[in-house]
Computed example of a mutant assay.
Amino acid sequence: MSEGIVAYQALIRDNHRCMVTGRLDSDSFTTGLTTDNPGEVISVTNCCHIFPDSLGNIVADASGPTEHESATVRTILARFGYEDICEELGLASTNANLHRLENVMTLDIMLRNVFDRLNMWFEAIDGQENTYKVVLAGGAARLATKGVIPEQVTFTSHKAGLQLPSPKYLRVHAACCKIAHMSGAAEYLDMVYGEMEELKVLAHDGTSADVLCYAIHDRLAALT
């Protein structure tokens, strides 16, 4: 599926609004695809990938930085029992499938930047399907004090048959964000590294994602 098609489907699924702030997509409004509600804020939205689409920029028989990065992520995902993610996203071939509804979100352009920089992630709330705590880090945490970002969100598909973002993908992304923002957490990293050495396969539901993401982080650091 092309990026343009999946972005349009995501807009329909997300009711032409940012999944976090609820702000109305300006293009959808100006082209008459949807109407606004009284007092509703109109903004620019983007289609944001959970697993970045750059992982799909693979050239056959090439061995550049992109190919190395994708191969590393693919190998570690497979090593720790996430072959299903590799298959779903097509990471095992040049025919990547990163442009899929389970891997994209409609986000306000500001939040797209925050999400891509690993300064925002979503933590699942137990017992509430597709409901997440919104976590902000770094300078983005100031947004929480301005009332721009809600404390939690519930993702809803506004059209039957259009899948919501994968909880598993979001869990792995959240773990990567936590690793990126850890400072002076040597003991924690030692614990995670120990688990990485001991575990043969991570939990299929993604609950051991911290171990996986440390492995990815550690391996990528070795390549740079």
Rank of each mutant, 00 (worst) to 15 (best):
D61N: 15
V73M: 07
G32D: 09
H158F: 13
M105R: 01
D27L: 12
L98E: 05
L199V: 14
T21P: 08
L143N: 08
K168I: 14
L118H: 15
L101W: 06
T145H: 13
H68I: 14
Y82W: 02
A203N: 12
D61S: 13
L170F: 02
G127A: 06
A209E: 03
Y169S: 06
T154K: 10
L202T: 04
M1A: 14
T131C: 13
D108F: 04
I109M: 11
C86Q: 02
S63M: 10
G127P: 04
I109L: 12
L11P: 00
M120Q: 09
S183L: 05
T224W: 10
V73T: 07
K133R: 12
I5S: 11
T75M: 07
T75K: 12
A180R: 08
Y82G: 01
R13A: 10
A209H: 02
L11R: 11
E129V: 14
N57G: 05
A141L: 10
A140Y: 01
Q9S: 11
A141P: 01
A185D: 10
S157F: 03
C213K: 01
A144E: 14
V44A: 09
H68Q: 14
A124C: 05
G39F: 03
V20K: 01
E67S: 11
L220F: 02
C213V: 04
N130Q: 15
L220S: 06
Y214L: 08
R23D: 08
L11K: 11
E69I: 14
A62G: 08
V153E: 04
A137M: 13
S63H: 12
D27E: 15
V201T: 15
A71I: 04
E129Q: 15
P38S: 06
A71L: 11
